[in-house]
């Protein structure tokens, strides 16, 4: 029986394109990329796609591993005690900063060293297609008129989106009920069946419903419009200063040598410029940023400060 199974696996491997391991400039032959998401989850999919495009450029074998559990706490602990020779990195998202601030694990984001920031993930406010609200301005006007009547949904408790909605409540005085869920799918059901007035999520989570014209995007929570959706105004344009910035990057243990950091910066920049990768990430409306280590460090520190400030302001942490 095992043989049959192994045969099936072998078939799978045989079908896969063989990846070349080119020039051996990189100091270690194999690099492990760890993520806290489970196979098929957001960061996992991001890493597997990234591997396809960065591996030939970097000239090292890239392997993805899932260190799930504790919303990143386990992965951070694992990373902090790993060798700092460029052989292991962790896929960062705002989650690792949130987890550090909210759950105070023994090893937090500040024990890791940001290496690169690859993308910004745009965040979008949406509603179902039959909703009476045609624009985000409509929603805000209605919320101000009917104080305490609206219902808003965010994917996870204490996520950046949830905090953004709390801010929106503060700005507009709408006193809307804010419902947190167990992920984007759960939230989508309640937007589609009309339980919620608006939801907030990433383009990728909305795509299938967008294509079927079951949901309508109302606003992008960013500084500028998205190239993929030029007709979708920002929240700012509609009179509400609400910005959620989410990022995807890599961080390593402290003390990774400069040449490794440089190799990654160059590899990421080159990969982001390649048409093949562009075609993939443009579909998800991801914004390529390609920050190197110095920029990534500064960005992460500033980002963490801002999240801390808003969490403190909302009284979630002291």
């Amino acid at each position: 029986m095992f043989k049959l199974f192994a045969a099936a696996v072998a078939v799978g491997l045989a079908l896969s394109p063989t990846q070349s391991m080119a020039q051996a400039k990189y100091p270690v032959p194999t690099v492990t990329l760890a993520t806290h998401s489970s196979p098929g989850g957001g960061s996992d999919v991001f890493l597997r796609e990234l591997v396809k495009h960065v591996q030939p450029i970097l000239g090292a074998n890239l392997a993805v591993t899932n260190v799930t559990g504790g919303s990143g706490a386990r992965a951070m602990a694992e990373l902090a005690k790993s060798p700092a020779n460029g052989s292991i990195f962790y896929a960062t998202t705002p989650t690792y900063i949130q987890t550090t601030l909210l759950s105070k694990p023994a090893v937090g984001f500040d024990q890791l060293d940001p290496m690169v920031i690859v993308f910004f993930d745009p965040t979008i406010i949406y509603t179902r297609a039959e909703s009476p609200h045609k624009t985000f301005a409509d929603v805000v006007a209605d919320a101000k008129k009917n104080v305490g009547k609206q219902k808003w949904g965010a994917a996870n408790p204490a996520s950046l989106e949830r905090i953004a909605f709390e801010k929106l409540n503060k700005i507009t005085g709408a006193k809307a009920a804010i419902v947190s869920h167990e992920g984007g799918g759960d939230l989508m059901i309640n937007v589609l069946n009309g339980t919620l007035d608006i939801g907030v999520g990433e383009v990728q989570e909305l795509r299938s419903q967008l294509e079927a014209k079951k949901v309508r995007m109302l606003a992008v929570l960013g500084d500028k419009r998205l190239p993929e959706f030029p007709d979708l105004p920002t929240a700012k344009e509609q009179g509400v200063d609400l910005v959620v910035s989410k990022f995807r990057g890599l961080a390593g243990p402290k003390g990774v040598p400069d040449d490794v950091a440089k190799a990654w910066e160059d590899a990421i920049k080159q990969a982001l410029a390649s048409p093949a990768y562009k075609a993939i990430y443009a579909k998800e409306a991801l914004e390529p940023v390609g920050m190197g280590r110095a920029e990534a460090r500064a960005f992460t520190a500033k980002f963490a400060e801002e999240v801390k400030a808003s969490l403190t302001e909302l009284g979630v942490i002291k």
């Binding site: 489970s38 196979p39 098929g40 989850g41 996992d44 999919v45 597997r48 799918g185 759960d186 989508m188 059901i189 589609l192 795509r207 299938s208 419903q209 294509e211 079927a212 079951k214």
Partner: peptide
């Protein structure tokens, strides 16, 4: 039909779809 995984197992299958660039949902 909706692109919404109803269980852990369905969530893994969703990952299988996404990895191959397929988005489950009404348009699938």
């Amino acid at each position: 039909s909706l692109g919404i995984p109803g269980s852990n197992s369905a969530a893994i299958l969703l990952g299988g779809f996404l990895i191959h660039g397929l988005v489950p949902g009404p348009m699938l």
